[in-house]
């Protein structure tokens, strides 16, 4: 979702229309996702006529942690890596936040949240640094680190416990003034906008895309490949921390056992049009991808189908999307 800007040199005299067409072509995947989402929402309304504002709010709450996890995954995948420790990082940050905020003042809660965000940055940076220093593949390192962070989470809390500051709960629960706009959605958009958009527009953001797209060309363009990779993983850690905090905020406790977020985030990223080869895509597509995955789950429930079939369909969607993606890539390379 690269923003279109600047004068478009055009000789045919219809710059606006052409720009729109070019934009639509470049964001074709995201646009079709949005269309798919609209169809799914309509379908939901058909099978469950009472689906309305409360449903949307419930959807937003259940989507929030996963959407942030998907954004986290998207950042490092764009940088040419993959992070299998996102679920564990979420568990760790969630239990740290919950255990420290329990029975404390509201003001102390603010300090805790800030500290947890810094913790996320640090553990993400550790992931990246280990990858850069040891030159062990991203998959192996983050797989191993997922043990470490999950173990650390268990050291903090053995069982789901802790608490959340009231302001934090209020931040994500309920509607934002108007019934149809849930707070969770507003929080998600604000958080992503505040962190991702400035990053993306900065040289650092460009460098993350550059190392994911073509490492050698990036090096020759003067990008510091190693440090950029660490920054990408630190950003992933930051978003994982936000996802962990949102878990605590929506449930009121911290759970030391990692949820299915790592795998779901990979699925959402692939579905959201981010190339696993790196360098392509954004964070908007994966967020739509999450909405689609969760809506499918909800619809299964509305149809009083076995919720486990939702897992099956999510798996099949993941497989189908990656197969489709590599088929396109393969055909392109044949030409």
């Amino acid at each position: 979702m690269s923003a279109v800007a600047g004068p478009i040199v055009d000789t045919r005299g219809r710059p606006v229309v052409d720009a729109l067409v070019a934009w639509a072509r470049r964001n074709g995947w995201t646009l079709s996702l949005i269309a798919l989402l609209a169809v799914l929402l309509a379908f939901t309304k058909v099978i469950n006529p009472s689906y309305g504002a409360p449903g949307i709010q419930g959807l937003a709450i259940s989507v929030l942690p996963l959407a942030l996890a998907a954004v986290a995954q998207a950042v490092c995948v764009i940088g040419g890596g993959i992070d299998l420790s996102i679920g564990s990082m979420m568990a760790l940050t969630s239990v740290v936040a919950a255990s420290q905020m329990k029975d404390q003042s509201e003001e102390f809660g603010v300090a805790v949240i800030l500290a947890v965000l810094i913790l996320g940055l640090i553990i993400g940076a550790v992931n990246g640094a280990v990858i850069v220093i040891t030159r062990v593949p991203d998959i192996v390192v983050t797989l191993a680190m997922s043990f470490v962070w999950a173990g650390a989470a268990l050291l903090v809390l053995k069982t789901p416990a802790g608490g959340s500051a009231q302001w934090l709960k209020d931040l994500v629960l309920g509607p934002a003034g108007f019934d149809w706009i849930p707070k969770a959605a507003v929080v998600l958009i604000v958080v992503v906008a505040v962190i991702w958009i400035p990053l993306r527009r900065s040289t650092v953001g460009l460098s993350i895309y550059a190392i994911g797209s073509d490492r050698l060309a990036a090096f020759r363009s003067g990008v510091a490949v190693g440090p950029t990779k660490v920054i990408a993983y630190a950003t992933t850690g930051l978003f994982a921390a936000l996802a962990g905090i949102s878990l605590t905020a929506s449930t009121g406790i911290g759970n030391p056992v990692p949820g299915p977020y790592t795998l779901m985030s990979v699925a959402a990223v692939v579905l959201g049009g981010v190339s696993l080869a790196g360098g392509r895509g954004g964070v908007f597509g994966p967020m739509i991808g999450v909405l689609i995955l969760v809506l499918i789950q909800n619809d299964m429930a509305f149809l009083s189908l076995d919720p486990n079939l939702a897992l099956v369909s999510q798996g099949l969607i993941l497989i189908g999307v990656v197969m489709f993606g590599s088929l396109i890539q393969w055909r392109r390379s044949r030409r």
Binding site: L263, A267, D306, N308, A310, L311, L316, I319
Partner: peptide
């Protein structure tokens, strides 16, 4: 990694069902 992950979703879901 992705492929076997997806298959594990499917298998787990079907086993649950």
């Amino acid at each position: 990694l992705i492929m076997s992950l997806g298959v594990s979703f499917v298998v787990l879901g079907l086993a649950n069902a």
